[in-house]
């Protein structure tokens, strides 16, 4: 599938999808979206690249080994649970900063948690799709 149009448009759309995925992640607390949807859209971006330019390119654009994304995402999600422990609340209790930041809005540990979800979902989908669409196609 070496189509110039697909390649060009594919990259462009992929970039848009990535931006949209961040948008979904950040607004998820108040409007439809969140880590799951955002992660899926972000993964869609890389799947699109994979379909148009093959697995190696998609992998290179992703920049990180999907397996590492799994670990990083899980760690981020878990880390968001620890601040609550310091003030004697149960693990994963939501903690909020009262100031309203530009772009991000209110910041709290649930957002960090959702970011972890986002990263894990991205890693999971990329890992699965890359494996099945794999470099090691035939043995």
């Amino acid at each position: 599938m070496n189509s110039v149009i697909l390649t060009t448009v594919g990259r462009l759309v992929a970039a848009l999808l990535l931006i949209f995925s961040f948008f979904l992640l950040l607004r998820g607390h108040n409007l439809p979206g969140g880590g799951f949807a955002g992660g899926l859209v972000a993964a869609g971006a890389f799947v699109l690249v994979m379909l148009s330019e093959g697995v190696p390119t998609a992998r290179r654009l992703l920049g990180v080994d999907p397996a590492k994304l799994l670990g990083i995402g899980l760690l981020v999600a878990m880390a968001s649970g620890f601040p609550a422990l310091f003030i004697g609340k149960p693990f994963l209790t939501g903690m909020w900063d009262k100031t309203v930041w530009p772009v991000l809005g209110k910041v709290g540990t649930p957002l960090v948690f959702d970011t972890g979800v986002y990263i894990v979902v991205l890693g999971v989908v990329c890992m699965i799709v890359f494996s099945l669409g794999g470099e090691d196609a035939e043995d």
Partner: peptide
């Protein structure tokens, strides 16, 4: 999302 994971796993 998990059923997606299951689908991928069973396909593999």
């Amino acid at each position: 999302v998990i059923s997606f994971g299951v689908l991928a796993f069973t396909l593999a």
